[in-house]
Design a protein around this nucleic acid. Structure first.
Lengths: 346, 346
DNA sequence: CTGTTAGCGCCTTCAA
DNA sequence: TTGAAGGCGCTAACAG
């Protein structure tokens, strides 16, 4: 309640009460050894009595270095991002940094503003999952603080990033469908402007080539941005006489949409996709999911960033690229194979 | 890269380049009308050339008021909290505040430290979803800044909160099971130390009383903290000869655990619970879910807080209590009623 | 229209 | 072991 703007006791107030100078208070609070036990105690008592809290804003102004790192993601409601954020926080906390989180709420055009805002607030570094393909604002940001990218590679920037084995995972999951005899696999993908979009399509394609199967271009739908668009695309494909015998989805939201389409159509065909999700194992659907540790992406990104922060005075390290492994998980009933065609849902 | 601690150009640098004083730069950046167009342009040019960004830390030190509000939640990975966070951000941004997010990662004992840290960083107010039942640290916090509680009522504090219709929702969902003839409904609940725990149990109980059904105490399990503990509790109950014919779960994680237990047991009985979740409609289970808008909790909490911030100099408003409505959603096949007993899963 | 002075709360440096 | 001076970057309040 004391808190009208600028209220609150200062070190000076504490000092007055403890009958020492503000300087001594500062020393006590910093655990500086050169203070007598007696004054120490008086100071702590005064701190307690006043409910004094050190003003970190003033402190960082003086010291230079706010102890904060910024994290920019597009959509916290997507578990991928929230887990990533948790990973970042875990490592940041360990190294004494605070994380300031910004969320662009799916609006790509807001990202530059968020990045600028974080820099204005003196974050010492940034971890960004770029929402779009333009990274000019990140180049600008790098003039001020180190920037590490997560889940997307730099485009025209020279900096670190943490990536998922997008190509490998997509290839493996697709291969598993092909191995079951499927030759008409639909591809439901996010916009190709995104790295993950093209990379996962490449994996999909490579698996086909390796299996000697020609992908049917009419079964490839890109540019899906959420569960709703994915559901519609899936529904259209399923409705075709020469529809797919299996689906490949490039992320969790697209899988959700496709699953909903299958459900509404009252049929099921095997589905492979990126990102495991909660309850995937109880759906009773034949799922092949490419799973990876989103927390770990965040942890690694934080480590790369903090490492860069540690080396600020020296030669900045060359851009590094860290990869987080994927593994394929099978859920639900064994696939009936392509011959069986769409099964009615039990 | 320029960013060793304390680096970066200052207003003074900009001024020198534009041949004006730092004060004039300040005025230009603040859109102060009393500056000639010519100098304006020179200043902007200099800003551009230097890549200057105003130091918000110094600014807020001077102005008093950081423009930040703090949000403390236990687990961002839970969609309930991430949606709440989105709601807070939405309103905060609208009013020109930045949100600093802290996550206690399920460790109740970390919460006081997070709150203190946010205060040290000069947040102007706090929104907290208290993890435990002790709120002493929040009383301390209120000495410094206004605090608004979300999803839990204050205990021994005099401040605003935003609540869900816990009692009402639980009663309604339970009543719907009772109306189908179930008399042996298991209650799977979180720790009774939590408000939501007791409140939802009250609703469960009230529905029974109204239906003239005596709840079986041996079917009531409280203190479940995550999906795993819930799964185990559900499994034990389902294993009993005189087990329940329906389940009531007090939150999404407990529902997930229970659903997994049902799945592993290869049976299904109707399940009612708090929190709708993704794909709930596709599970093919008879679900009765109490749904509400978690974003809205965040939005309302932010509004209450900002309103308090606006009134800092005047008389602080009396503690307000806002309620977010619930509604009951039915998914999956119609309930077979209690007579049918556990059905084998399709 | 523009500049000077002073100080937000803290800490580094130097002196006692 | 403690204190005084000065300044981090910025901006109100007062000149001019």
């Amino acid at each position: 309640m004391t808190a009208r703007r600028g209220g609150g006791p200062t070190m000076h107030d504490v000092g007055k009460l403890a009958q020492v100078s503000a300087m001594t208070v500062s020393r006590v609070l910093k655990n500086d050894p050169g203070v007598s036990q007696a004054t120490r105690e008086r100071v702590f008592a005064a701190v307690d009595q006043l409910g004094y809290r050190r003003n970190e804003t003033a402190r960082s102004l003086r010291l230079g270095g706010s102890g904060m790192i910024g994290l920019v993601v597009t959509n916290l409601a997507n578990p991928f991002y929230s887990r990533l954020a948790l990973g970042v926080q875990e490592v940041a906390t360990e190294y004494g940094f605070r994380v300031v989180l910004s969320n662009s709420a799916e609006q790509v055009e807001k990202e530059p503003g968020l990045v600028d805002g974080l820099i204005d607030h003196q974050v010492e570094g940034l971890i960004v999952v770029p929402a779009g393909s333009r990274q000019k604002h990140l180049a600008d940001a790098m003039r001020h603080v180190p920037v590490v990218l997560a889940a997307r590679p730099p485009a025209g920037l020279d900096t670190d990033c943490v990536l998922v084995e997008d190509f490998h995972g997509a290839r493996e999951a697709t291969a598993s469908l092909l191995a079951e005899g499927h030759t008409r696999i639909a591809f439901l993908g996010n916009p190709p402007a995104l790295y993950t979009g093209t990379e996962r399509l490449r994996g999909f394609w490579a698996a086909h080539e390796e299996a000697g199967v020609e992908p049917d271009n009419t079964l490839i739908r890109q540019g899906l941005v959420d569960a709703a668009t994915a559901e519609q695309a899936a529904a259209e494909l399923l409705d075709r006489a020469d529809g797919p015998t299996a689906l490949f989805c490039t992320n969790n939201r697209i899988s959700h949409g496709a699953i909903r389409a299958l459900h509404k159509a009252g049929t099921t065909i095997p589905l492979a996709g990126f990102d495991d999700f909660e309850l995937s194992d109880v759906l009773g659907l034949p799922l092949t999911l490419v799973s990876y540790d989103a927390d770990e992406i965040g942890r690694q990104a934080a480590r790369l960033l903090i490492d860069r922060l540690d080396q600020r005075d020296g030669q900045p390290p060359a851009a590094r690229r860290v990869t987080v492994p994927t593994r394929v998980i099978r859920h639900g009933p064994p696939s009936a194979g392509p011959g069986a065609g769409p099964r009615p849902l039990a």
